[in-house]
């Protein structure tokens, strides 16, 4: 069972099946649990952040990669850094 230790912590999981009544089966690296889709539109294959049984946001991988690229660029201008990483 996925019980977040912190009240404001949402756990990322992958939507593996859309169920009736705005619910989805979400896979957390092997553990599966239903999540409520009242607050998000999600499709199979997407990662969602789940908090207290509710999917609260869809995670965007493209945004994650963009963030890393921006950070690598920002750090590349400092002397301690080399080529800015491999993102």
């Amino acid at each position: 069972m996925i019980v977040p230790s912190a009240m404001c912590l949402a756990i990322p999981g992958r939507v593996v099946e859309i169920l009736d009544g705005r619910r989805a089966m979400v896979d957390y690296g092997g553990t599966r649990r239903e999540a409520d889709l009242t607050f998000v539109e999600a499709v199979v294959g997407q990662y969602v952040l789940v908090h207290a049984g509710f999917a609260m946001q869809v995670l965007e991988e493209s945004d994650a990669l963009e963030t890393l690229a921006l950070w690598d660029e920002a750090l590349s201008s400092f002397s301690g850094s080399d080529d800015g990483g491999d993102a």
Binding site: L59, A64, L68, W71, L75, F78, S81, G85, A87
Partner: peptide, 18 residues
């Protein structure tokens, strides 16, 4: 998805040095 990149010790060190 990409969590390891956000735990990358080399990037963390670079950021601390910066």
């Amino acid at each position: 998805m990409g969590r390891d990149d956000f735990r990358d010790p080399i990037r963390v060190r670079k950021a601390l040095d910066a």
